[in-house]
Design a binder for these strands. Sequence first.
DNA 1: AAAAAAGTAGACCGATTGGTCAGATTTGTA
DNA 2: TACAAATCTGACCAATCGGTCTACTTTTTT
Lengths: 209, 209
Amino acid sequence: MPVNVSSKISEKNRSIIIAAAERLFASNGFKGTSIKEIADSAGLPKTNVLYYFKTKQGLYHAVLNQILDVWNSRFDQAKEEDDPALTLAEYIYEKMQNSLHNPCASKVFAIEIINGGHNLSDSFLAEHKKWMEGRVTILQSWIDQGKMNAVNPEYLLYHIWACTQHYADFSSQITNLKGKPMKKGDFSQATDELINLILTGCGLSLPKE
Amino acid sequence: MPVNVSSKISEKNRSIIIAAAERLFASNGFKGTSIKEIADSAGLPKTNVLYYFKTKQGLYHAVLNQILDVWNSRFDQAKEEDDPALTLAEYIYEKMQNSLHNPCASKVFAIEIINGGHNLSDSFLAEHKKWMEGRVTILQSWIDQGKMNAVNPEYLLYHIWACTQHYADFSSQITNLKGKPMKKGDFSQATDELINLILTGCGLSLPKE
DNA sequence: AAAAAAGTAGACCGATTGGTCAGATTTGTA
DNA sequence: TACAAATCTGACCAATCGGTCTACTTTTTT
């Protein structure tokens, strides 16, 4: 019976299992991934996976929680006196970096949302809503100060999410169209294009360096 | 043995089954949906579903093909002498209408792409690539004519897709943030916001009416 | 060193699933 | 009406899956 849930071995194995599960859930979905596949991918027997995560759903929730835990940004602490162009550019950059370095996490989250988001905790949903309201307030204050065009802050955020996550979630489509997977340089270019599109669309521009 | 594949009954049942399957695949994914569920939702016994579609994969491919068949747009025939603002606005409008009226189709396609797109036919992938190249050429000609800003046409298209499809695929997240599902009026507003953002971002604007 | 806790692992089970088969029923047509 | 094609359907099956149970080994603690 596992009592000390944070021993060395426990933590190492848990993270190995979660990483393997994240990768497989992203490729085959929750139902499409068997515990045995996760175990094989993690190099452990199936029973061992069940030892650390009592049920498949429990493992899925652990994967989901780890994904959501990492999602914080400098935009979270933006203030009315901050510069919208810099703040938004930085936010877009951060989200693009996440798509580059954590594509599987983005995919698992995307599938979860597409399927209805029934596995997301009420507390996460509430926090997310609160975060959104705070960001809308900041954006609106920037608009009221005449710092940027009067776009609808809510929809602006949706569009930023959509574009940045697209590079992780739809990577297979992009790979087909480009003929090869996007590398760091492509991501850098896409980030520049997106920042330029959004900022220009908001009547903003970055100071030339 | 089904020989005449296009009789009245056959076609009616096939479309009922495909519609039910599309809805369930969008909610639970391919593996997460059982043939029995599809059959129940279609009001038919399971064996009957297998009668029209020999395998579950076959049914899935039928669903996918029906989704892709409908995707054509006025943008497909755009010419160098056309107006970029009107053309792009119309294209965005069409894609938003699709998200409004066919959210399940968008979701099924999204999950397919996220999972790697291994069920898409080579001919579809090739056609899609060809379409893309044609649209990039048109956009580049508009840029060369000085009709719009020198944005990268390829990434511009990605961003349009990402934003428009987001309203179908991520509807559950938006519903949570808004407190209620988006209605026609919300879609109309979102469409206006998106058209304005993209066009402004491209240095374009629609003629005032 | 011994006891306890944590981790590993094989055997096993009930439930579900995709799919088959054989036969009944309905529909179209000459 | 007669016959064949098309449609419908219940019974059935092998395979897979999530999960349990039991027992063994390793690590930690006292």
